[in-house]
Design a protein around this nucleic acid. Structure first.
Length: 450
RNA sequence: GGCUACGUGGCGGAAUGGUUACGCAGAGGAUUGCAAAUCCUUUUAUCCCAGUUCGAUUCUGGGCGUAGCCUCCA
């Protein structure tokens, strides 16, 4: 497979990826709404689209790929969270954005080409709303502006829903201000105490979907290559984005490929804030390194559900330990053969199986394969820290001092020499409990952090 | 109710119209004072029923089951 293939949610089929312009390949991924610290579910989307970015860079070159990931920093959930936590909005969004960036670094995600904020684009959002009203695709009602879903004939195409079914099954309390229950808000009025911007419809704030329409167009153009996000964004977020943008630009072409990642689950149940079954990225990386978390997130193909549990993490941690014995700063220049597995709709499990193979070959002394192995690991964002630095991470988890370890080993050596194996084994057990592994090789004792 | 995805060995997880996935765990061996690590060898699988086919885990239909979306969510 020499061409990139991606499953396109628009057609539900695996398709060959053909960029509109190979000189400027465009990827837009929905970033976080900064009201609470990111969890492992958010991390999956982050890592999946980071991987896609890396693949595109490998194929087209770093300068020719434009990766935009937004930050939504105005939203009702943010307002609510600031009230609950009794801190002001910008302090909250700054703090969460900072934490988000820290998590991105921990997970070794590359920086996107652009990371626009919703609040920097309110003016454009107002303009888009005005134009939609002029086109009779939106209407004002009681200080709100609604998008009229009936104005877009393809509504429901992405999410495989037809408007008739949606109406029949509507479970939400429908605002009386709406002409049609499916209409969604473009602009809403703000209370005095809430953040707001002056607009033709009074002081207010934008609705949820508008920022992505505005920012994707501003940085990538009306028609761009790939739009990504979690599976749960298909409806209504992405559906509404398409409707707004297409009607606004009088086109039926918005993103050509829609890529959606599956959920992270806990006990087979979706990890989500409303269920409360979340693990934050920060918590996950307290126990396991960012690389282990990253490898775990890639251990399943991106569309499948991924159950988050200790067994998964310990297994991946073990794998990475093993692999690090073949860590090298010598990295081959050329793209490894197994890259083709990534081209097939990002088949990371198959790619990882090839890493095991390369590891095996490296270990048996094949230096070319070792260079290839190191290249292949880096390609998916592993081996970003040296073996020494990884050891430092493990060291930070251990309380016992190096001097104490060495003195214990000395005592053990003495015990071994006089044949007191009982004492020697006791000392080994003690060190084990402290998180130190002992190896007796060729008459010499070496130790390592677990 | 509508729509979508999924159901592979003890566990995780690929692939495939007929031939070894891979990893973890388990078993045996080498090694070791005993271990650990490593290496070698190795057991175990395609939800059920029908159809298409020389042949189906793979394709089609039906059933059962699980998860998700239809409301904020990555």
């Amino acid at each position: 497979m020499n061409d990139l293939h991606l499953t396109n949610s628009l057609t539900n089929k695996k398709e060959i990826f053909n960029p509109i312009n190979p000189e400027k390949v465009s990827l837009y991924a929905c970033g976080p709404t900064v009201y609470d610290n990111p969890h492992v579910g958010n991390a999956r989307a982050l890592v999946v689209f980071d991987l896609l970015f890396r693949i595109l860079v490998e194929l087209y070159g770093k300068k020719k790929v434009m990766y935009v990931r937004n930050i939504t920093d105005i939203d009702d959930k943010i307002i609510q969270a600031s009230k609950d936590k009794k801190i002001n909005i910008s302090d909250l969004t700054d703090e969460i954005t900072k934490n988000f960036h820290k998590d991105c670094e921990t997970l070794f995600c590359l920086k996107p080409s652009k990371e626009p904020k919703a609040t920097d684009h309110v003016e454009e959002m107002i303009k888009m709303t005005e134009k939609l009203i002029n086109k009779k695709a939106a209407y004002e009602s009681g200080g709100h502006v609604y998008f009229s879903v009936a104005s877009f004939k393809n509504y429901g195409k992405l999410s495989n829903k037809n408007p008739g079914d949606l109406k029949a099954g509507a479970r939400v309390e429908v605002s009386k201000l709406k002409k049609d229950p499916l209409d969604f808000v473009l602009w809403k009025p703000s209370e005095k105490s809430d953040p707001g911007w002056d607009s033709p419809w009074g002081r207010g704030r934008p609705g949820w979907h508008l920022e992505c329409s505005v920012m994707s167009e501003k940085y990538l153009g009306i028609n761009f290559d790939i739009h990504g996000g979690g599976l749960d964004l298909i409806f209504p977020h992405h559906e509404n984005e398409i409707a707004q943008s297409c009607v606004y630009n009088e086109t039926d072409k918005f993103a050509n490929y829609w890529v959606h990642n599956g959920f992270v689950t806990m006990n087979k149940e979706k990890m989500s804030k409303s269920l409360g079954n979340i693990t934050t990225i920060e918590d996950a990386t307290k126990k396991y390194s960012g690389q282990v978390v990253r490898l775990s997130l890639l251990s399943t193909q991106y569309k499948q559900p991924l159950d988050w549990n200790n067994e998964l993490l310990t297994e991946q941690s073990k794998t990475l330990d093993k692999w690090y014995s073949m860590y090298s700063s010598e990295v081959s220049e050329k793209t490894p053969d197994c890259f083709r597995e990534l081209l097939d709709d990002m088949n990371t499990p198959l790619y990882i199986s090839k890493l095991h193979e390369l590891f095996q070959q490296s270990q048996s002394g094949n230096t070319d394969k070792k260079k290839e192995f190191n290249k292949a690991c880096r390609l998916i964002g592993l081996f970003n820290e040296t073996a020494e630095k990884r050891a430092d991470y493990k060291k930070s988890k251990v309380k016992i001092s190096e001097a104490k370890i060495l003195s214990k080993i000395k005592n053990r050596d003495k015990a071994k020499k006089i044949g007191d194996y009982k004492l020697a084994d006791e000392i080994r057990d003690e060190l084990n409990k402290e998180g130190i592994d002992i190896k007796d090789e060729k008459g010499k004792t070496t130790w390592n952090y677990k």
